[in-house]
Amino acid sequence: MASRDDALRALEDRDWSGAEVDTSPSRPAMVVQSIRLPEDLARWVEDEAARQGTNPSVVIRGLVERAARPAGRTDVVTVRRTELELALHQAVERAIEPAA
């Protein structure tokens, strides 16, 4: 694995005089919120994240987004193709898994 110094040396060896700054936003800024949960809720969030194949922050963000959405709202939603494929794969896997 290269060290930080190796990475800095590699950057120094390049001619950056023709470089252009990309100022287009790639996604909205995210703000970190810290919450305290009782052990049973924290365990539920972790279990749900494992079931969905994601991490706890994605589960919590989804719950907050649903709670903040007005009733009856039918906005168009954009989903990354990889996220859609993962969700479909997980749904199919759960549907064909033998009952335990």
Rank of each mutant, 00 (worst) to 15 (best):
V79K: 00
R9D: 13
G53N: 03
Q90N: 11
A50H: 13
G72Q: 12
M1N: 09
G72Y: 10
D13I: 14
P70A: 12
A68K: 02
E48Y: 06
E39Y: 03
A68N: 08
V32L: 10
R14M: 14
E48I: 05
V21M: 11
A42W: 02
A68W: 01
E83K: 02
P70G: 09
P25W: 00
G18N: 13
E65D: 14
D75L: 11
G62T: 02
R36P: 07
A42V: 07
D75E: 06
R81I: 13
L63F: 07
V21F: 08
T78F: 03
A10N: 07
E39I: 13
V64L: 06
P56M: 04
A99P: 09
L86A: 15
E46N: 09
R61V: 08
V64K: 00
T54C: 07
I35R: 00
L11Y: 04
E20N: 05
V92H: 00
V92L: 05
A7I: 11
L88S: 08
A71S: 12
I35L: 08
E65W: 01
A68M: 12
R66M: 14
L84D: 08
Q90I: 10
T78P: 06
W44D: 15
A95G: 03
A42S: 13
P98R: 07
R27E: 01
A99T: 15
R80G: 15
R9C: 06
I60G: 02
G53F: 01
R43K: 08
V32N: 09
G18Y: 06
A91M: 09
D6F: 01
D22L: 05
T74Y: 08
T74D: 15
E48W: 00
T74G: 14
